[in-house]
Design a protein around this nucleic acid. Structure first.
Length: 573
DNA sequence: GCCGTTTTCGGCCCGACTGTTTTCAGTCG
C-alpha cells in the first residue's frame, strides 16, 4: 500500500528540486498542488488508481497520474530518481530552514558544496556565507537563527500530526485478542500542543505477542529497543513510539505514571508518602507490609489520596492539586458542547470547498452554525475578498441560508489588520456581517509596542468579534510575534473581544497558558479550525485540547453558545 | 504540468518586506 502521505512526500521533494533548478513556475505549482492535495484528501490515491479514477483528484492530469501509477506499481519513480541525482537530499533539507529558499539553497550548494544543515551551520559560523553574492552579515545571522528553530522543530511534532499516527498504531495493536486495555499516554494524552514522542500503554498477560506485533508494524522503520515490558520504534515519519506492557492489575497506576507530567507525578507521590503510602507504576501500596491497595484504575488512586479525579490535560502541577482538594477543578468542555465552527474558508478565497459543502459538513458534525470567514483583499495570495466580492458572498450566503435546513451559515470575514492597525475592509461593510475575525498576516516583525498597538486598534473597532491566531506562531517555523500578550488579553477584556484558539495543527494558537490567563480575566475564547476544506473541520478536537488544558469550561467559549445566544453575544452591529 | 471549451494553446492569484543592491532578488504567505 502506497500511502497518500508517501506520495505527497515524493511530489513535495520533486517540487523542491524543480524550484532549485529554477524550472517553470507553473509546472512547479502543479506538483506542489498535487503534493498538498494528496496529503489532505480523505480518499487513498491507490484506491482511486485501482478503479481508474486518479484524474478525479484535482490537479492530476495525464503526466502526474502516470507517475502516481508508476509509484504504486513499482514503488519507485524513474523521473524522481533522475532528479535526485542532480540535487542531493541534503540540499532539499536546507529549504526547511526559515529564510532559506531555492535560490539560497542552490547558491550554497554550488558555491560552497553545502549539502547538509550541519555544513551550512559550519559555514555560517565561519562567516563564509557573507562573501557570497547577495549575502551579508544580517542574512548570515538570520540563517543561524533559522537553523536553531529548525533543530527545535525536529524534536517536537504538533499534536495534530502525532495523534493520528498514534491512533493508527493503537488501532492495529488493539486487534490482538491478548490486549486487555490500551491507551495513549504521555504528553499526547495530556493534549500538549507539541509532542516529542508517542507513548502507548497496554495491559496484557501475553506481552511477547504484543511486542512481536509492535516491532513488525507496517509503520516501523527502525527498532530502537526491544523487550518484554518496553519497546521502542522509529516510524517512517521519524517519530519515536514507546510501548509499555503491564499486567492488567497495574494498568491504572502505570497509566498515571506514563501520562505524567513528571511534576504531577512527583506531587502525587509526595502526597502518598505523607499518608504512609507508596505509588509506583505497578500500584499503590501501604508502606507497612507492602500491601497493594489499588492500581488497576486511575481514578482509584486519586480517590485514595482524597482528591477528585484530575483529567490528563491538567496534570502539570499548575494548581490542579489545590483545585482538586478544594473542589474547584473545571468542568471540562467536551466536543459535543461545541455548537459550531467560527473560522473556516471556502473557495471564495483559498479554501477548497464551496460554502454549501462546508455547511453540509458542519451539519454532519452536529453543529448549529458555521461561520464562513474568508480572507480579505490584502492577502492577495490567498485570494482575499475585496468589498465587492464580499458583498457578493453575503448575498450568496443569504440564499444558501434560505435553502438549507438544520444549519445556519454565519456571514463573516477574516479581515487583515494592516500595519497601522486599521482594517482591510471598511466598517460600512463589516457591519453587514454576523461575525468579524481580525488577523495579522503581514509586517510581522514590527516592534513590540507597535504591534501591540496595532492589535489594540483592531480590537477597539466596534465590529471586530474575535482576534484570530493571536500570537501568529507556526510551530517549529515561526516564533510567536513579539507582542505584549498580557496587554492584549487586557484589551480583549476591556473591548469584549474574544481571542481565538486556532486548531490547525501547525498553529495551535492561542497557547494553553494564555488561554488560562484569558479565562482568568473573563475574556471569551473561540475555537476555530481555520479549515480550508471540509475534512479539516475535524481539527476541532485539537483546539479543544488547548481549551481543556487552559482550564476552560463551556461558559468560557463562544462556540458552545446556541445560535441565538451567540448572536446576542457578538458585538452589537 | 494542468486546465478549459468564447483558448487543444495560452494562461496559470502577486504584493510587501528585507537585506542587499544602486535598481532588485529572495522569501513569505
Amino acid at each position: 500500500m502506497v500511502k497518500n502521505a508517501e506520495l505527497a512526500y515524493i511530489f513535495g521533494n520533486i517540487t523542491k528540486i524543480l524550484k532549485i533548478q529554477n524550472d517553470n513556475v507553473f509546472k512547479i505549482r502543479a506538483y506542489e498542488r498535487v503534493a498538498d492535495t494528496l496529503e489532505n484528501m480523505p480518499m487513498e490515491a491507490e484506491t482511486l488508481y485501482k478503479s481508474g479514477r486518479l484524474n478525479e483528484i484535482p490537479g492530476v492530469g495525464t503526466a502526474i497520474a502516470q507517475k502516481i501509477g508508476e509509484l504504486i506499481e513499482t514503488g519507485r519513480l524513474e523521473y524522481y530518481e533522475k532528479l535526485k541525482e542532480k540535487i542531493p537530499a541534503g540540499v532539499l533539507e536546507l529549504l526547511n530552514i526559515p529564510d532559506i529558499g531555492p535560490r539560497k539553497a542552490k547558491l550554497f550548494y554550488e558555491e560552497l558544496g553545502i549539502d547538509s544543515v550541519e555544513k551550512l551551520e559550519k559555514a555560517a559560523l565561519a562567516h563564509q556565507l557573507q562573501s557570497l553574492y547577495g549575502m551579508g552579515k544580517k542574512a548570515e545571522e538570520n540563517i543561524l537563527r533559522g537553523i536553531e528553530l529548525y533543530k527545535r522543530r525536529e524534536q517536537r511534532s504538533p499534536l495534530g500530526i502525532a495523534l493520528p499516527i498514534a491512533e493508527e498504531i493503537v488501532r492495529e495493536l488493539k486487534s490482538l485478542p491478548c490486549v486487555d486495555q490500551i491507551s495513549i499516554a504521555g504528553s499526547l494524552r495530556r493534549g500538549k500542543d507539541t509532542i516529542k514522542d508517542i507513548d502507548i500503554l497496554i495491559s496484557s498477560l501475553k506481552p511477547e505477542k504484543i511486542m512481536e506485533k509492535f516491532i513488525n508494524l507496517p509503520q516501523t522503520k527502525e527498532v530502537l529497543a526491544e523487550g518484554l515490558t518496553k519497546s521502542a520504534i522509529l516510524t517512517k515519519q521519524n517519530m519515536q513510539v514507546d510501548l509499555r506492557v503491564v499486567s492488567p492489575d497495574s494498568f491504572g497506576t502505570a497509566l498515571l505514571y506514563f501520562t505524567g507530567s513528571q511534576a504531577h507525578n512527583v506531587r502525587l507521590r509526595e502526597m502518598a508518602v505523607k499518608r504512609g503510602l507508596k505509588i509506583n507504576e505497578y500500584g499503590i501500596f501501604q508502606v507497612k507490609g507492602d500491601k497493594k491497595i489499588g492500581g488497576d484504575d486511575e481514578n482509584e488512586i486519586y480517590e485514595i489520596l482524597g482528591l477528585h479525579y484530575i483529567m490528563p490535560e491538567l496534570r502539570e502541577d499548575m494548581g490542579e492539586f489545590e483545585a482538586a482538594r478544594h473542589s474547584t477543578l473545571p468542568i471540562p468542555v467536551e466536543l459535543n458542547d461545541i455548537k459550531g465552527d467560527l473560522h473556516t474558508h471556502t473557495d471564495y478565497s483559498d479554501g477548497l470547498n464551496s460554502i454549501k459543502e462546508m455547511a453540509a459538513a458542519a451539519k454532519q458534525r452536529g453543529y448549529q452554525y458555521i461561520a464562513v470567514t474568508d480572507h480579505s483583499q490584502s492577502l492577495h495570495i490567498a485570494g482575499g475578498l475585496d468589498e465587492v466580492k464580499l458583498l457578493e458572498q453575503i448575498k450568496r450566503i443569504n440564499e444558501i441560508n434560505r435553502d438549507i435546513e438544520g444549519i445556519t451559515v454565519l456571514k463573516g470575514i477574516e479581515v487583515d489588520i494592516k500595519s497601522d492597525g486599521s482594517l482591510d475592509i471598511s466598517d460600512d461593510i463589516l457591519k453587514k456581517l454576523d461575525i468579524v475575525i481580525a488577523a495579522v498576516h503581514s509586517n510581522l516583525k514590527q516592534k513590540r509596542a507597535l504591534l501591540t498597538e496595532r492589535y489594540r486598534r483592531a480590537m477597539e473597532n466596534p465590529y471586530v468579534d474575535i482576534i484570530a491566531h493571536p500570537t501568529g506562531r507556526i510551530i517549529g517555523y515561526r516564533e510567536p510575534f513579539d507582542i505584549d500578550i498580557q496587554e492584549i488579553i487586557r484589551i480583549a477584556a476591556r473591548t469584549k473581544t474574544a481571542l481565538e484558539i486556532n486548531s490547525s495543527p501547525e498553529r495551535m494558537d492561542l497557547h494553553d497558558i494564555y488561554v488560562k490567563s484569558a479565562k482568568e480575566q473573563s475574556v471569551m475564547l473561540a475555537i476555530g479550525t481555520d479549515a480550508h476544506q471540509t475534512s479539516s473541520l475535524d481539527q476541532m478536537r485539537y483546539g479543544l485540547a488547548i481549551a481543556r488544558r487552559g482550564w476552560l469550561e463551556k461558559a468560557n467559549l463562544l462556540n458552545t453558545l446556541s445560535l441565538k445566544k451567540l448572536k446576542e453575544r457578538l458585538k452589537k452591529k
